[in-house]
Nucleic acid binder design. Sequence first.
DNA 1: TCCGCAATGTTGACATTGCCAACTCGAAAC
DNA 2: GTTTCGAGTTGGCAATGTCAACATTGCGGA
Lengths: 202, 202
Amino acid sequence: MSTLRMSRPYHHGDLRTALLDAALQAVEAGGHATLSLRDLAQGLGVSHAAPYRHFANRQALLAAVAATGFARLAEAWLAAWQGAGTTGAGPTDTGPAARLRVAARAYIGFATERPGLFRLMFQGPPPPGAEAAFAGLQATVAAALPGAPEATVKARTIAMWSAMHGFAWLCLEHRIRPAMLGPLAPGAMLEAVLDAALGPQG
Amino acid sequence: MSTLRMSRPYHHGDLRTALLDAALQAVEAGGHATLSLRDLAQGLGVSHAAPYRHFANRQALLAAVAATGFARLAEAWLAAWQGAGTTGAGPTDTGPAARLRVAARAYIGFATERPGLFRLMFQGPPPPGAEAAFAGLQATVAAALPGAPEATVKARTIAMWSAMHGFAWLCLEHRIRPAMLGPLAPGAMLEAVLDAALGPQG
DNA sequence: TCCGCAATGTTGACATTGCCAACTCGAAAC
DNA sequence: GTTTCGAGTTGGCAATGTCAACATTGCGGA
């Protein structure tokens, strides 16, 4: 029975997505290590066991968050890649290598702007959607290497992914910091990594 | 008083290093996320609060483990680099790029052979010793680029570190798996990453 | 040699947390 | 209107990190 007046309805309405949203926010704010299911539930005005009606356990919730992270990353990647290719067909049209470079900056930007989410995405068992990430990457790399054999495309994809992912991670975790760079500007080191991964002609 | 006979001595002797050893083993076996101070203490035949006499908290113990990990990684890196340079001065002598390539393989081998430790090392606040890792890397890269300006050396160091670290991490977390490679052999993709990071002439 | 002290270890406790079982509520199907 | 079942609640348990208070021991100085 409603204890007094205006008591919250017994059913939340859409607790599942509310949990996902709150978890995403918590992961971005404090990292997945400190996320507490009970905190989440309390924040949503719901009892401490309610989350278990929608997620088998903490790990399942985190996996779902990671999956949405992969969707957003793929979105950002593709948007950057497509955006870089729609500058008209004139002589200033962006070549395929330059488009890849723009996309790579989006990848690294995503990582540094959402470090908590990015860390979660690339830790532990791959969540659903992580698999498609490689396929999307490979498709854009293939577009930059028309006519190349599949093995070459895969090799270049892995090389590029490794370079930009490693750089993103090392920046994220402050293993690479501007202080250690001396004369090298932060932007320049990003370009150096991309030069090595894509060739300086990009 | 000793409850009966042969009771363990009240003082452990060297609990600090015993804790470090046990923690290292636990991290390599099950990952740092599941490491429990109480388990560790029980395994060493010591009460559950004893670890707090040597480490302020769980995080401090993990940081110490990570620090020894960095020491071992630097050791492996340097050993590979030096080992690759002592093949005599004949025409088969290894060039600087090839030596870097051997060292990079050692880096990736370290990561894949000790995934739990490697994950710990590159997560959270950098432990003492992490700083020196970059300096060691840079020294070997500098040796491969005699006469190059500092900015170039730093740029190449970061590019190489990013590539090999990213590749190691993605393999570690099974984001890169042999199954997704198709015609590309596992060894070949490693070489492709190193080609991109070092130039194919290495 | 004896005493005191600081380092090291122990016991007990507390709060937090993930997770489970049993129960309840209420909306939708029949 | 009755039934049913998904969704939420209460209560509890075990594990864990951490702290406070106490115990033990070895070592250095009187």
